[in-house]
Nucleic acid binder design. Structure first.
Lengths: 227, 227
DNA sequence: TCAATCATATTGTCTAACAATCTGTCAATA
DNA sequence: TATTGACAGATTGTTAGACAATATGATTGA
């Protein structure tokens, strides 16, 4: 029933747009981890009523981006080292699944697109502006998830990744790791190219584990442990 | 006016209890897949205001239990065969992770508890009331997740499982499969006993895949494909 | 310094209202 | 007959205002 001309009704309700706006404000770092979200301020910031705002907050809370503290108010979720570790472990499992699914389900076009994106990544030098890098990575994952053709997986992975985005401060500063990252992703791509889903998965998990370790190290270096 | 879901407003915030109550009503099957959730009816059913109800609906919508159709109202999510398949694939990955994490993280007590629960499962005969069986299985998973010591995983797995619960109608009727199920889980438990996380994971995935296949078969048999 | 108390801000919840949108009905028309 | 259009009722989308419950910070008293 959904033709390619179907209009996106979601955009129409203020509610949906508010959720997106608030999510964006958190992901972009405008609302930093630990920040309190005072209702009155938020309603002014977004120009919506209290009711709508509270609905949106409920949504983001159940996505994990916001933490609800009864009678104190919502707070932008702040990740500790333990939560970060847990997040990455789950991400490993999901990313692994995405890779193995992609390997056996993706169309030739999708496969080609993934290779192209990877080539674009490879062509980047460390010095290049981080934005382009982040965007290329996003493209990579978007393509991967499309090819995996599993909306449940896509949703969960996206939600998980949204939570991890807050750690970007930690990982970006350690961008000297880029060559390693590239090598790891390369192994994934090669396995996909070879049609070896199992290996693609293992390599993906290894990659995530490596990224997780970097984050843990940064936590130690910056002594960022909150009590 | 007061239904059996009417809340008495005490401890927690009403909001939180409403979410639980509504979730329970869906999981228990009192609100079946496809059912429309008309706001006025729901507010009477739970004895809360429209605002609170809408907040709760947002929450369950982002858990996937409810589907929001703009300007038509919320509907209890109805699973089609394709969504079911996707759900099970992700579940395989998460359950696999849970098993491997359990293997390397669980305490001796938790390990022992898991074995005990499995023994309880083994002792059950097919004829036994399904309720006891479902409960034992729940215990098994609760224990597994506790031992895995990963709250993120626990949350995601629980949410995923909540969505799958709606398919219980399909799987219950095929309870002749119980001996097979038992054998599959047995292999998982054995791997855990042997401390072989990798194998525990593989066996868990195999188990989930088998369950998924049963569901797919039931979809075909009952010709349950919608539209 | 510490503890009890109070004032204020904020959240939790309810009611009422109106606009926008959906649904079904029924007559008019080709 | 089948399609179109218009209309009425029901439901959702959104706002505003109110009040009680709770948290926070300052003040006072010992």
């Amino acid at each position: 029933m959904t033709s390619k001309y179907a209009l996106d009704r979601e955009d129409l309700t203020l509610n949906a747009r508010l959720v997106r706006g608030l999510r964006e404000a958190i992901l972009s770092g405008d609302l930093k981890g630990g920040a309190r979200l005072v209702e009155r301020e938020m309603t002014e910031m977004f120009g919506v009523s209290r009711g709508l705002l509270r609905e949106a907050i409920q949504t983001l809370a159940s996505e994990g981006l916001i933490t609800l503290v009864p009678h104190k108010g919502p707070v932008v979720t702040l990740l500790g080292r333990e939560e970060a570790a847990q997040l990455y472990r789950v991400r490993g499992a999901l990313e692994g699944l995405a890779c193995s699914e992609f390997t056996q389900r993706a169309s030739d076009e999708q496969r080609q697109e993934l290779f192209d994106i990877f080539a674009r990544l490879e062509a980047m030098v460390v010095k290049e502006e981080p934005n382009a890098l982040v965007e290329a990575k996003n493209d990579f994952y978007r393509c991967l998830l499309n090819g995996a053709a599993n909306e449940v997986l896509e949703l969960m992975f996206t939600q998980l990744n949204n939570r991890i985005v807050q750690l970007r401060r930690l990982t970006l500063s350690a961008s000297g790791r880029f060559p390693d990252t590239l090598k790891e992703i390369g192994r994934v791509v090669n396995a996909i190219r070879a049609g070896d889903g199992r290996r693609a998965r293992d390599m993906a998990e290894a990659h995530v584990a490596a990224a997780a370790e970097v984050v843990q190290r940064r936590f130690s270096e910056l002594d960022l442990d909150k009590e």
